[in-house]
Simulated assay, not measured.
Amino acid sequence: MNAFSAVYWKEVRENLRDRRTLVNALLTGPLLGPVLFIMLMNVMVNRELARADQPIDVPVIGAELAPNLVNALKGAGIDAEPAVADPERAVHDMDADIVIRIAPDYVKAWNKGQPVQVELVYDSSRRDANTAVARVRNVVESYAKREGAMRLIARGLSPATAWPVTVADRDQATSQSRSALMFSFLPYFFVLTVFMGGMYLAIDLTAGERERQSLEPLFVNPVARWKLLAGKLAAICTFSLISLLLSVLAFSTAPWFIPTEKLGIALDFGVHFGARVLLLMLPLIALLAALQSLVSAFAKSYREAQTYLSILMIIPILPSALLSVIPVRPEPWMYAVPLLGQNLGIVQLMRGDGVTGQEVLLCLAGGFAAAALAIIATAVMYRSERLAISG
């Protein structure tokens, strides 16, 4: 058995016996997050769908002035409740999601054929009230259009006279591309899973051994330093790869628990999707393993390395955060940028558009080039005798 294999299997076996590494690499990162997200998404979606179908009670001020409007609301499952003295306060105190206020001159203006005012009092910052507000607004606007058309007909005019221009929507979104909006965070989550999967192992194999003063006996062996580093990096990559695989498998169960048919979306997280994700993420597994080892090498203790890597963890967030704030049109060169290329590629897969061979090659080339630079920098650090000194 050569030095590389000896170091690799030694580190893998030792960390398989380390409960902390196993919990963080193979449980917390790849499984806990997807399970919690799927459960929360399932509860939230079912709750919103239930609220969209159930009757709601809405206080109406001046309901006696517009009985036809009240009947239209009732026909849509919106029951008029007694008026409240202060609608703004009722909405602010969350006693009501929305309050309808009919202008006192409603009848007079209506009889003269003049526009009438119906106020909707609500708080747009309350996400739990958005469903009720949308339902009420749609009913009121539909009632207004219908009555407007009736006025024109009574005057011998075609309703089309009031709408010389009509808008015809041609939405090109597919059920699968709409699902990309709901799961737009997925690329970041996969990157974070890879990071968490190898982080504790990288700390233990560098800063941990330095703190235990076991690096110096290892370095005095007549073995090239690069072989020692290669064995350690391979062990870190193995745990990261397993962590990513478990995460992909966990998210593949999402269609079983989320009512995709009711939402009009399609989730395809099958074998084809998982295989492409693993391929795109391969460069990042090597890159993050090298970066984690490099940063940990500057720390003299396990806790200090944790602090450093917690700061390094911000880097995987940047592409997803930037794309969520500043949507960009993908350009070929972007796929060659590590992290950004993986983010764009996975989003394309979720949309059902797929990634071309050129985009895959750019993603792999850029990622492995960055990983090679990080590995070289780590190898230079491993050649330093200061690394073996804990004090």
Rank of each mutant, 00 (worst) to 15 (best):
R170Y: 09
G113E: 04
G270W: 10
A168M: 07
K262Y: 05
R276E: 08
V116H: 00
P187I: 02
R303H: 12
A103S: 13
M94D: 12
V121N: 04
Q54A: 15
G197P: 08
F298N: 03
N343L: 09
Y188F: 13
F368D: 08
A297E: 07
S179M: 11
P316N: 11
S142G: 14
N2I: 00
Y200I: 03
T166P: 00
V60G: 02
Q172S: 12
S247R: 00
R101D: 13
L201P: 07
P222R: 12
S240Q: 14
I311R: 07
A76K: 08
L387I: 15
V277Y: 05
L361K: 00
T206W: 00
Q172W: 12
V165P: 06
D268H: 12
A149R: 10
Q213N: 11
A234R: 01
A52M: 12
W256H: 13
A76W: 03
G156W: 10
V107R: 10
R19S: 04
K300E: 08
E331C: 02
R47Q: 10
S175A: 14
E119H: 05
V12G: 01
S384I: 06
V140I: 15
A66V: 03
V360D: 01
A286Y: 00
F189G: 08
T28A: 15
V45Q: 02
S175I: 01
I78W: 04
D204L: 07
M94Q: 12
D79T: 13
A168S: 11
G156T: 11
G391P: 04
I102H: 02
V12N: 02
A336E: 02
H272Q: 14
V107P: 04
R101P: 05
S158C: 06
S252W: 09
R225G: 13
R126L: 09
E261Y: 08
N42E: 09
Y335M: 06
C237D: 03
L65A: 10
R276Y: 11
A109K: 15
E141W: 01
A90W: 00
I78E: 08
A63M: 05
I258P: 09
A149Q: 13
A90H: 04
P283D: 04
L73M: 15
K232E: 04
L22H: 07
K232A: 06
A134Y: 07
I389R: 14
E141L: 09
G357M: 09
S384R: 15
V191M: 15
S301Q: 07
T161H: 03
H92T: 14
P187R: 07
S177H: 04
T206Q: 03
R89K: 13
V107I: 13
Q54P: 00
R303P: 01
M39Q: 00
S310R: 09
